[in-house]
Amino acid sequence: MKQSYYKKLIQYTRRGTILALCSLSLAVQTNAQENKTLKANFGLIYPLSTNGTHAPLDTNDLSVHLLAGVSSVERGSAFAGLSNIVRNEAKGALFAGFSNHVGKEASGALFAGFLNTYRSAKGPQLAGFANLAQADVNGVQFAGFLNATGGNMNGVQFAGFANVTRSLNGSQFAGFANVANNTSASQFAGFINVAKDVNGSQFAGFINVAKKVKGVQVAGFINVAETSDSPIGIINIIKNGEKSIAATIDETQTSMLTFRSGGKNLYGIIGAGYNFKNEDEVYAFEVGLGAHFFQSRHFRLNMELTQSTLESFKEGEYFKSTLRLLPAVKVAPWIELFGGPSINFVSTNTAEGLALHPESDDLVIHTWKNRRSDFRQSLHIGYQAGLQFIF
């Protein structure tokens, strides 16, 4: 009785399975006849796939190829060991060991071991080497080397080497360079940022270049712009800013010839000079940043933070960190006199440096001796006075 029951159950199951497969086959055939599309494509490489030579004309919901696949439109996901090639739109996620290529818009996500190319994109694009877009991109780009967009970029770009776009509504992060005509956020680069109008800020390890900057420019060495009120760099070439050559002297009889350059609020300092207090030849070098306060037609207060060194090109070191307040008076539109107090921290192990700040000096606030080396540190009060020619 039980055996008969199981036999009938097996027969019914077989019949049901056959009926379901026949129904699925009929549905696929009917759909293929009516819509001229296939929902799935499996294969090795074009044309060795289930869609055969018709694959470039087909729309798929799923594509899986051991090497490379070709299709007209991808509505779902596509996987390929090497490359996915979509002649028109891709509305899902594409995964490829080497590259993805989309002829029109990629509105899902692109993941490639080496390269993604497409006309436009909505969604993230990740590539081991480069993402290349002909038109607009709305999303995020991550590339080991380069992101390049021929249109507008609405999102964020991350590249190991460079990001390039026409207009940016977001931020750029690159190991070497960022390039954009207009940007509404910030650029961060290991070496250089280049932009036309920046409604944000620029941060670069070496140089920033822009036309109009509404935020700050921060560079390890140089900032260049037509308008930038708050550049932070050693040299700032601002067309609508201020540049000057100054001659100064401080409490140690160190005379400097310095170049000051910047915008309305901030400026950079670089200079070289000579110390006249030592009998030996001792040269001086200085870099720093400054800020303008309480500006009027004839008066302003400058605050400067500098790092200087004295060098006799013999053994030993001398470093001085200085914070100074310098009231300044313009005696003419192009001549300014300034002078004021400073507080200085000195670290030295040279005889010349120790002689400049003896412990008995009334200006010395405190001294420290390093037990592990022959360096001595001291904190002392000083001053600086000077004359600068503005141009």
Rank of each mutant, 00 (worst) to 15 (best):
I335V: 15
L363G: 03
F142W: 10
G220R: 04
H101R: 08
K320N: 11
P341N: 04
G52F: 13
H366A: 13
A40T: 13
R297P: 03
F158A: 06
Q134M: 10
D61E: 11
N31P: 02
L110V: 01
L289R: 01
F299Y: 12
K8N: 14
E74D: 11
V331S: 13
S378T: 13
G316P: 08
N240D: 13
I390R: 08
L310R: 11
I343L: 14
V329P: 05
V28M: 15
M153V: 06
L67K: 06
Q141H: 06
I234T: 09
Q217V: 01
F158N: 02
V287E: 07
V28F: 15
E279C: 07
G353P: 11
L257V: 15
A385G: 15
N208S: 12
I390W: 08
G16D: 12
V287P: 08
G76S: 05
L44E: 04
M303D: 00
M153R: 04
E281I: 12
Q29W: 15
A68M: 12
A291T: 04
V28S: 15
F203A: 00
T348G: 07
R300Y: 10
F391A: 11
R119A: 02
Y318A: 07
T30I: 11
G123Q: 01
V102H: 03
S255F: 11
Q295S: 09
V209H: 06
E251R: 08
T309P: 09
A246Y: 03
F221L: 13
S71T: 13
S244W: 07
Y283L: 14
K277N: 10
L257E: 05
G97F: 06
E304M: 08
S308K: 06
A210F: 02
L44T: 10
K369A: 08
R87Y: 13
Q141Y: 00
Y5W: 12
G103Y: 06
I381N: 02
E352P: 10
N236H: 01
A272H: 10
G113H: 04
D361K: 10
L44K: 02
L66M: 09
S244K: 06
F114E: 03
A106V: 00
F389G: 09
G353Q: 08
V213A: 05
N31S: 13
T306E: 03
